[in-house]
Design a protein around this nucleic acid. Sequence first.
RNA 1: GGCUAGGUGGCAGAGUGGUUAUGCAGCGGCCUGCAAAGCCGUCUACCUCGGUUCGACUCCGGGCCUAGCCUCCA
Length: 459
Amino acid sequence: MSIRLYNTLTRQKETFKPADPQRVTMYACGPTVYNYAHIGNARPAVIFDLLYRLLASKFPNVIYARNITDVDDKINQAAADEGVSIDVISSRFTRAYREDMGALGVGRPTVEPEATAHMKQIIEMIQRLLEKGHAYEAENHVLFDVASFPEYGGLSRRERREMIAGARVEVAPYKRNPEDFVLWKPSGDDDPGWDSPWGRGRPGWHIECSAMSAAHLGEVIDIHAGGQDLVFPHHENEIAQSRCAHGRETFARFWIHNGFVTVDKRKMSKSLGNTLIVHELLKKWPGEVMRYVLLSAHYRQPLDWSESALEQARKTLDRMYATLRDAGPAPDTAGDLDPAIVEALEDDINTPTALAHLNRLTRELPNLEGNERQEAMGRLVASAGLLGLLQEDPAVWFRGRQEASGIDSEKIQALLEQRSRARKDKDFATADRIRDELIDQGIEIEDSPEGTRWKVISA
RNA sequence: GGCUAGGUGGCAGAGUGGUUAUGCAGCGGCCUGCAAAGCCGUCUACCUCGGUUCGACUCCGGGCCUAGCCUCCA
């Protein structure tokens, strides 16, 4: 089976065939590092991490680049607010981003280029655009001349006329056309800036992705990914810059866009102030629970984030880990991947269907014996691994939450011993009283042939 | 106004021209001193109006509703 992906360029699912199977290239728009990532930022990180794993399982050499935007006016603002230099801000939040995404099971991409480290490439690309007549200088700015690229709007399917009619922003007077966008802008004395043929300044937002993907992946790449809100104008502008600078027919062959995370059905965004910060959520919920929630809807659909979605995911993972725990020791060798799960993921990353099959494997497991059971366990763990789930030792999974809740396990243990003595004496009133006390504390107990187990139910 | 996605059972959420999604919750059973957990079984669906078809939740058209983009945004 081959991988099929929905391509925004053609608005349909297409079979993914890399230009060069020996060197598959993928670029995803990464974070602007001026504060902590919210759960809406985490969705593409998780989804494209999964896509990368999937590609890597099929092709010998996949290069995945995810940039760090460390030149941005919001970073400047944050730095000014604290009275520190921008690299203090950007390195702090770059580190936080990697930690937080790591907690969600997101691996590091092959390359993580930073804009500040690519000023030379950015300036060279702008020069090339000027030379080819696709850009012009005006009042210390360099602007991209949209009129010079007739195919502008192809990705987002917009007509230039309509864009002008619907524009809500004031048009800078030095623009030839309202839809022209900035490649380079001047920096004031207090702003961070780099020397350029057009004076001391800094790059516009779009050019860094074009320059860095060309530098690390090549002029034409297989996949370019990002959030749906980047389709216009960011990705449209990237296409214009890259194709014009390189004189190629194509920039990215496949464009993949994820849907939004919503809260109360409204898009989670910094401007609406309804963001939930991953760094904060991790204090209450295991990263794996959040990953499960993020995978529970198809990546192109909106995903409504809620406490109940988290609880449901936690319960489901509890059941899976409990099944693994009760199934005995894990097999030594890596298991085979479940074909249905692979098939679901290869069909435009259908994670809900993949999770349904993961649940099926979990359900089947207790009914199997001997070798069959060992094989099924291996298959479950290996298949879940493709999704970045169930890689924890079950004991660690359950213990982790006890530690996080700060509960004194020795005290619990003492109460449980008291209860089992009472039960032995048929003093069920006392036994049940102890159980009720524990439930009040958010502790649930389970009697099993191996003795009484307990777990934290309220996080 | 232009352009995009959607409207599925109590909730979340896949999918298909005629056959069980799955999870959580509910209900019944097994198990248990009683529970919990687990297992087995089970009830609630496909926005609306037309059309195509032997047959549509699934295809086509109209309508209603929701969200998003057109400004920084994943």
